[in-house]
Simulated scan of single mutants.
Amino acid sequence: MEISNYMREEHRSCDEAFAKAEQAASGGDFEEAFKHFETFMIDTLNHFAKEEEILFPAFEETTGSTEGPTQVMRYEHTQVRNLLEQLKEAIDAKDKDRFFSVADTLMILLQQHNMKEEQMLYAMCDRVMAAQAADLVEKMKER
Rank of each mutant, 00 (worst) to 15 (best):
Q23Y: 03
A24N: 00
S26H: 13
S26M: 13
G27D: 04
G27Y: 09
G27E: 06
D29M: 02
F30T: 15
F30C: 15
E31I: 01
E31C: 02
A33Y: 06
H36Q: 15
H36P: 09
F37W: 13
F37N: 11
F37K: 07
T39Y: 05
T39H: 04
F40S: 07
I42Y: 00
T44K: 12
L45G: 04
L45D: 01
N46H: 12
N46A: 02
F48H: 15
F48M: 10
F48R: 08
A49G: 02
K50M: 14
E51N: 07
E51S: 01
E52C: 02
E52W: 06
I54C: 11
L55T: 14
L55G: 08
F56T: 06
A58L: 05
A58I: 10
F59M: 12
F59D: 07
F59W: 04
E60W: 08
T63W: 07
T66K: 08
T66W: 03
E67K: 13
P69M: 06
T70L: 03
Q71P: 01
Q71C: 10
V72M: 08
H77N: 08
T78S: 13
T78K: 12
Q79N: 13
Q79F: 00
Q79G: 06
V80S: 04
R81M: 07
R81W: 00
L83M: 05
L84W: 02
L84H: 11
L84F: 08
E85D: 03
L87E: 14
K88I: 03
K88N: 05
K88H: 07
A90I: 09
I91L: 15
I91V: 14
D92T: 15
D92C: 06
A93G: 09
A93H: 09
K94C: 05
D95M: 14
K96T: 01
D97E: 15
R98T: 09
F99E: 11
F100R: 15
S101P: 00
V102I: 09
V102T: 15
T105V: 10
L106N: 04
M107L: 13
I108Q: 14
I108K: 11
L110H: 05
L110K: 08
Q111G: 01
Q112C: 07
N114M: 02
M115T: 08
M115V: 03
Y122W: 11
A123F: 02
A123L: 14
A123H: 10
A123T: 06
M124D: 10
M124F: 08
C125Y: 10
C125Q: 05
R127F: 15
R127N: 15
V128N: 04
V128R: 06
Q132S: 07
Q132P: 00
A133S: 10
A134L: 09
V137A: 12
E138I: 04
K139Y: 00
M140T: 04
K141Y: 03
E142G: 11
R143P: 00
R143H: 05
R143L: 06
R143M: 08
